[in-house]
């Protein structure tokens, strides 16, 4: 259902967009020097005059046979482009997701436990600044500081320029991945930390924490025995909603770092009127986000005894 809706929206939006795929892909100079017949052939090849519904129907029937169509922009099957790009992107997003999750959780708890303390003020202030900073701007700053001025990291791409793909080592790949991943993590941390902080404050103010204290538990003991346990559920929710955030951020970050991932492919597909590729990417990302939330829901049942018992009863 979700997939159908997503693909339909992508198709309608692309057909509404003023981008002419022929003009966008051939280039201005070639277009102006092109004969009318040649233009007509190209337009027919790219299916410019095929009505939206028909295009959609043929795409869906192809999809059902396992064929996601061909990308106009990359002149290759969509499945292949997506697979190759997704490999790059998933590593990037995975690292960013984990790093922002772990760091955000730690900072959020540290801030929430001693509300109003020095750590809390520091975390809160930096998170507000980060949350208010546009992703692309943070990416640019990172690029300028660490890529250009300090020269610690390469300024873009997923491999050294001019090196044959076969010669690219893991170290090279990681070195190129680091800066975009750090940027994406830093942007994500603010969100996770602020949400975790709120939840931590709730938990620390709860009757069961008050009672635990009344029984002589120290703050550290309370956090370890009751805090973490009760923060698992909200943290799961935050982490899974964060998948969508990280995905959105990756589009911008990949663009700034010229990192060949899904996000960058999506941008060029959009600009080039490459419906098949855009729909393919949209499907994959919708599946990822949906999958993340599904996993969260299943994990709730595993973690929370209240839900577990309800399932076994119902």
């Amino acid at each position: 259902m979700l997939m159908v809706a997503v693909s339909m929206v992508v198709f309608s939006l692309v057909s509404l967009s003023p981008v002419d795929p022929v003009a966008a892909n051939v280039g201005q100079a070639a277009l102006s020097g092109m004969s009318d017949e040649k233009l007509a052939t190209l337009q027919a090849y790219w299916g410019k005059d095929v009505p939206l519904v028909e295009r959609y129907a043929s795409w869906v029937s192809g999809l059902l046979r396992g064929d996601m169509g061909d990308s106009l922009r990359f002149n290759a099957p969509v499945a292949q482009v997506v697979a190759q790009r997704a490999a790059n992107s998933l590593v990037l997003m995975g690292i960013a997701w984990l790093a922002s999750g772990v760091l955000g959780l730690a900072l959020g708890i540290a801030a929430g436990v001693r509300r109003g303390g020095a750590a809390d003020r520091l975390v809160k202030a930096s998170c507000f600044v980060l949350a208010a900073s546009p992703t692309f701007w943070v990416a640019l700053l990172m690029l300028i500081v660490f890529g250009v001025v300090l020269g610690w990291f390469p300024i873009g791409f997923s491999a050294p320029i001019g090196k044959a793909a076969a010669d690219v080592t893991w170290l090279d790949a990681f070195h190129h991945l680091a800066l975009p991943a750090i940027t994406l993590s830093v942007v994500g941390v603010a969100n996770v930390a602020l949400h975790t902080r709120e939840k931590t404050i709730d938990v620390m103010g709860s009757p069961y924490v008050r009672f635990a204290r009344a029984r002589g538990e120290s703050t550290g003991s309370v956090v370890i025995h009751h805090g973490l346990r009760n923060l698992v559920l909200p943290a799961l929710t935050i982490q899974c909603s964060q998948i969508a955030e990280i995905f959105g951020g990756s589009v911008l970050v990949e663009q700034v770092f010229s990192y060949p991932g899904l996000g960058q492919a999506a941008v060029s597909a959009g600009i080039g009127g490459d419906t098949a590729l855009l729909a393919g990417i949209a499907l994959v990302s919708a599946a990822l986000v949906f999958g993340g939330n599904l996993v969260a829901n299943i994990l709730y049942g595993v973690v929370d005894p209240r839900m577990r018992k309800e399932y076994s009863r119902g």
Partner: peptide
């Protein structure tokens, strides 16, 4: 604070004072 649970114990009002996940 040192007497909490070591001389003075609290009996709270309701089950809400128990950790729901333990």
């Amino acid at each position: 604070a040192a007497l909490r649970g070591h001389g003075i114990s609290l009996v709270p009002q309701s089950v809400a004072s128990l950790d729901p996940l333990m």
